[in-house]
Design a protein around this nucleic acid. Sequence first.
DNA 1: AGTTCGCTGAGT
DNA 2: CTCAGCGAACTG
Length: 727
Amino acid sequence: MSQDSPFSSAAPVLVPMPAERPYTYAVPEGMRVVPGSIVRVPLGPRQVAGVVWDGGAEPVDVRKLRPIEQVFDCPPISRDMRRFVDWVSQYTLSPPGMVARMLLRAPEAFDPEPWTEGVKLTDQRPDRMTGARERVLAAASDGFAWTRSGLAHAAGVSSSVVDGLREQGVFEAVMIPPRPVVAAPDTAYAAAELTPDQRAAADDLRAGVEADGFGVTLLDGVTGSGKTEVYFEAVAAALEKGRQVLILLPEIALTHAFLERFQNRFGVKPAEWHSDLPPRMRERVWRQVAEGAVKVVAGARSALFLPFRELGLIVVDEEHDPAYKQEDRVFYNARDMAVVRAHIGGFPVVLASATPSVESRVNASQERYGRVVLSSRFADAALPDLRTIDMRRSPPARGGFLSPLLLQRMAATLEKGEQSLLFLNRRGYAPLTLCRACGHRFGCPVCSSWLVEHRFRGQLICHHCGHTQKRPDACPECGTLDHLVACGPGVERIAEEVVAHFPEARTIVLSSDIMGGVRRLRLELEAIANGDADIVIGTQLVAKGHNFPNMTLVGVVDADLGLANGDPRASERTFQLLSQVTGRAGRTGKKSLGLLQTYQPDHPVMQAIVSGDSELFYEREIGERERTGLPPFGRLAGLIVSAPTRAEAEGHARALRLAAPNASDIFVLGPAEAPLSLLNGRHRFRLLIHGGRRSDMQGFIKAMLAAGPKVRGQIRVQVDIDPQSFL
DNA sequence: AGTTCGCTGAGT
DNA sequence: CTCAGCGAACTG
């Protein structure tokens, strides 16, 4: 950028590793670098890409000083982006180098995209005409440049035909510039047809974008109220101003439907950004975002670190989704960092959700965020009738998990030729296996949580660390044969019960265990939407945004699951999940029903779901959190230590108490509560810090980090947001 | 993060 | 005395 003056003899360079500050490199005679320049520098024995940073180069022993090797021919990282990296680094207590690493994740993109060689028609005619040659000439008669293989393919001939013509001078070789990854969106492609409600909401958002300046709006609309079409109007407004737009989605790999909706409105698909993107595509998207050629990116949380030139709007869809939290290396919540990014850039953010997070609701009620409410569903999408089934009064048959009331409804639905969905957020067959002879329970040898039986695969699997073993026939403790029993239900076991009751029905199980990955899953979902199944049994992946037009019954097998797991957000998560799942029914125009099997029908979450009154839930939950000091109102600077085994967690907690004698509370969590990511990384344990004033915690954590190298290497911190702290 | 350094303890 | 195996330290 023009206000950045160039460095001459030495420059600070942020390298992609956990450096606390930029390193100083010599700038060779005649080389020109400015803050933001992407450079290749020697680091120890290797060469890495780094970013020239701001501020003066700190003086360093000339014998240590090494020269910048190369300045990449690439737009420099903007000043806003550099401030963002510094801010995220401070806020997350991660070294700035590690944050910078996230924006240098496309190493091949730093060199300009190569032009490819192609061919173009000349005035020369071929010596002899053949059928193949005629087709090639016809295909190329538009006068544009073609790639050899592209032309051959279009003409239905082999590329040697093209080569032959080129040798005769019928074609000349030309260089073709890199093709854009996506065409420019057309804001006038298909003007939105909006209801008066939606129109009012869209105008609100549009006004925010047109006013040009920072602001956060919570777009709060029930499932099926058309949130997407409404925020597309804000996207259009930003595009009309010539700005770039970022739309964050929780799990981009499964959001095929979203891309289509975008295309219906803007005529083209947005550029995608997520971890499954092929490397070549990844580079091109990165480069073209940096050059400003890509106008709209739909991406996962890491898209927040793309080097936008003229970012003018961020939309965070499903803002409550836990997938926005990154829980390794740099711990951050992309939703909150999006707000920060917008604050730095001076442009608006839209947070959209049918079930907003409690933090966002609090921010809205305290008027730090604006709030736009969409209350009505589309005309053909009636709300489902929602009821609880009190499992104390209508218990399942012995050995079963489905209440007679639910089975009765399933039978009626099947009779009508409509589909049922049974939801249970637990993979596998049974969460615990034990020996009836001696009482031995199968625990994971690596991390001491229970092994989950997967009967289809004949395996016992630890859902915690991924440890797998074959399910034995005999008890390893007492040797008794055939006395192992499964305790509790998983989706496979529910499927068994369903097949026993409805042998003639087409039953399908959907969980992340299915073989064949995302592609297969998409096919299965399509098949269900086409009516190729009568009863679907699924884990939480069926809760996410798919439309099944003939699905008129949703049964939640265990609505209480997740309410009693020690997570301070247990109620909130359960409310959000149950809202989403029951929202799968009633999008059909047909009369539909949602049934929740629960032992706590009076629990506020069940009451809120059944009454359809989410205000009821939020008011209660916010009051409860204020009272107990849980996030976002926390008053305690408490630590939660979690580790692969309880004994280990306790050991670490003891060490932390010694290192930080002034810590108010150190809680210990066993393996059942420790997140999966814990064991995949290299660290041994992690700290979760809930509540408290951020500044207090930062001081506290820094004191602890200063306490010694033993603690330093192992601490990972995740801080729950104090809603004021990032504005 | 990725690499080298240096200590410990088992092995020739 | 050598060397694998591991944790700690350093990278400009």
